[in-house]
């Protein structure tokens, strides 16, 4: 083969390889667009039939074909917020323990263990919640809550171990490894010199943590929390087992509720009527849009922190 032929073949090979890799990179964008288009198309019937009323109606009646998303949206948002409220202090506690307190030989193993626990499939958390945690809650914790905190409307309801609060709790356990490993990585980025300056002027360990480490890493922590929120909003299996699947909106957190993902998991294969299926797909579309916005926000926030960190 002459040198010119070979040069031509190389050029063709280059163009081909670049073209193929470009195609697959574009396929990611295409996939996202396709998910939106397909969900929009399939939920068109429901969008047309119920319009904006879908968001504010709490009807969910497959027999008469009347659907509203409010209970599912309410359940998704409230259970995720409960999860964040519980998971945030514990995750920060774990991160502080791992970066500032744990003796060196413990740091590695505990850190790795927490990261490994993040890889356990979510269905395991859900199943454990149903078989182990729910009976425990209904026997010991929830009657106590109703008796002593029942004057607050939030802590009322049937103490069955299944409902909004248990779902939020299981979600919290699921996202703890996730938030705490991100928070630990962020805490480790605080320059030692800044912390030592704190100790140098006589600050206690807690004062250094609360007035130097946490303010320094604030946006990163917010980003990690929103990322955890994004996970919690879309989580299906951990919630479906313990939320109770009731399309009633109740302020009492011990009452059964539902979420978008739990409704989909339980009802999707049973939906025969077009309008039923279409309403379920619209629920999926709503979930997709909510998580898209939340995750995009988290990403922009973390990116901003990284840029600011670089400037400092």
């Amino acid at each position: 083969m002459g040198i010119y032929d070979r040069h031509k073949a190389d050029k063709a090979g280059d163009a081909l390889f670049k073209g193929i890799s470009y195609f697959f990179a574009l396929s990611v964008i295409l996939l996202m667009a396709l998910i939106f288009i397909v969900l929009l198309k399939e939920s068109w019937l429901s969008l047309k039939t119920f319009g904006f009323g879908f968001f504010v109606s709490s009807d969910w009646d497959p027999v008469s074909g009347s659907f509203g998303a409010l209970p599912a949206i309410w359940g998704t948002v409230v259970s995720s917020l409960i999860a964040i409220v519980i998971a945030l202090p514990i995750s920060l506690g774990i991160a502080i323990f791992l970066t500032e307190m744990a003796p060196k030989p413990l740091k590695g193993p505990i850190g790795t263990a927490i990261e490994l626990l993040a890889s356990i499939p979510s269905i395991i958390y859900g199943m454990w919640g149903l078989f182990v945690f729910a009976p425990l809650l209904s026997d010991y914790v929830e009657p106590f809550l109703v008796d002593y905190l029942g004057f607050i409307p939030l802590f009322r309801g049937a103490p069955m171990g299944i409902g909004m609060l248990p779902a939020g709790f299981i979600l919290a356990i699921m996202i703890i490894p996730f938030i705490s490993s991100v928070a630990r990585d962020i805490f480790q980025m605080v320059p030692a010199m800044i912390k030592e300056s704190g100790y140098g002027v006589g600050a206690t360990k807690w004062e250094v943590i609360s007035r130097v480490v946490i303010p320094y890493t604030k946006s990163g922590i917010i980003g990690a929390v929103i990322l955890g929120l994004g996970r919690a909003l879309g989580e299906t299996m951990a919630v479906t087992f313990v939320i109770g699947n009731s399309h009633e909106i109740s302020l009492a957190l011990l009452d059964p509720a539902t979420s978008i993902s739990a409704t989909l998991a339980n009802e999707f294969t049973e939906a025969v009527e077009e309008i039923y299926l279409s309403s379920l797909v619209e629920l999926g579309l709503i979930l997709f849009v909510i998580t898209f916005v939340v995750l995009a926000l988290a990403k922009l926030l973390i990116k901003k922190t990284a840029l600011e960190g670089g400037r400092r």
């Binding site: 964008i29 994004g230 299906t236 989909l264 990403k299």
Partner: peptide, 28 residues
Amino acid sequence: HVADVVRFISDILVSAPSIVVGVFVYAL
């Protein structure tokens, strides 16, 4: 710019609700 968009969308898809992917493939 294309690469930036691909990165952004990938990062969102990584954490996107997996049940929605199920609904999508069901319809597709």
